[in-house]
Design a protein around this nucleic acid. Structure first.
Lengths: 223, 223
DNA sequence: ATTATCTATAGATCTATAGATAATGC
DNA sequence: ATTATCTATAGATCTATAGATAATGC
């Protein structure tokens, strides 16, 4: 038998090694938190998934909550930034005639595209975020990381809907975000309910319908 | 100083006492689970809130998960039953001309009314259910308890929307339920986002807008 | 000489069971 | 005589810290 070549020990700088380990820890935590929530996951679970000793997590993170918040923060900036750009670009293009659907597409489709293109890691983050979002502690994290983009969206919606009250617009957003979170959660419920006709992870199907659906909803509110 | 009259020891039958204690346990668990989820609550927390010894919970419930499921089941039948009735009644009234908004009002407004009228206990259940709903284990509880009502709603929507594909209708429902769960969760996010203009617990405001908003969304899908 | 990782362990819970005690039921 | 509640406790985690060891950096 030929002896397997020993795993080639790639020489990594400490900075590289640190970054790599951190990433692995965050990936593992993200996945587990997305399934079981903050309290349903132990540091042990995370360490086991990474293949390191539990105490290493304490070397990188103050405590469990700090790890949790780091998971939230890691990708929050990316999605927030991309959507902010998309909204800015849309606002510039549309000039003084923005439409509700246009604004929603910049906001929603940009995000859905990110999850579609981002593979498993981003899908896990989506489920993690959705789970966090309807939690009292989690909602505060949402505030911190997402208020700017959301308020940007709302400012465009206001211009697109000059005759709709601000209150109506906020409630409309409340509906939109609920639907988006329900999508990101991928609970599998729609799969079973529809007998397999729809799939929770078919974000293309959601993208095709969501902005249109919600735009019509907003327009109906002022009546 | 006048001595306070000793708490009048009401003579309760065992059956009464059992029912009362059970109710107290379920109320406490419902409240705590709504805030912290299954894993964030210990039996100790529940017992302390009720004012009994931890082990009493094991007398009434097999284990923690059984308690959790009992909390879910207790009110699930009530809301499911009421909405089923409302949908049946609407279907009968509307004959062969049901509307999307009519069906959604029977489904959504009936539920929102229940939370509005049910006080704190029902509000806690709503938050509990919302939290459960975007969880993998929780979604299965949703299936078991709510599939019949939801499929009833969908059958009426199909008749109201003969030219809309079944897939579109299921995705529309997916959006609706996400918005409803986001409402029941009462995370406080919309309050802060809107600078106090909207309040998470203002279910009247939601009721006023939701069916109309969603109905317009459904109608836009077939275009 | 510094940083990454592991060993050992304290101290605090947490769930669940066995068995005792106190109350109601007949 | 049965049911509701409590006492005592086993056994299994879990988080977090202190301090040792192994690797990279200069």
């Amino acid at each position: 038998m030929v002896k397997a070549a020993p795993a080639k020990r790639v020489r990594r700088s400490k900075a590289e090694q640190r970054a790599e380990t951190l990433e692995q820890i965050l990936d593992a935590a993200e996945y587990l938190f997305s399934l079981q929530g903050l309290h349903g996951v132990t540091l042990r679970d995370v360490a086991k998934r990474v293949g390191v000793h539990t105490t290493l997590l304490h070397y990188y993170f103050q405590d469990k909550l700090a790890l949790f918040e780091a998971v939230f923060a890691r990708r929050a900036g990316v999605t927030s930034g991309l959507r902010m750009e998309a909204l800015d670009q849309y606002a510039a293009e549309a000039g003084d005639k923005p439409t509700v659907e246009g604004a929603l597409r910049a906001f929603l489709d940009t995000d859905l595209d990110l999850y579609i293109a981002g593979g498993e890691a981003w899908m896990n983050y989506g489920a993690f975020g959705a789970r966090v979002s309807n939690t009292p502690e989690g909602a505060v994290l949402m505030d911190v990381h997402f208020d700017p983009v959301v308020l940007k969206l709302i400012s465009i919606l206001k211009r697109a809907l000059p005759d709709t009250s601000e209150e109506d617009i906020f409630w409309g957003y409340h509906f939109v975000t609920g639907s988006l979170m329900n999508t990101l959660a991928r609970s599998g419920r729609i799969d079973r309910l529809s007998g397999g006709l729809c799939r929770s992870d078919d974000f293309m199907a959601v993208k095709k319908r969501m902005a249109k659906f919600m735009a019509a909803g907003f327009l109906a509110l002022k009546d």
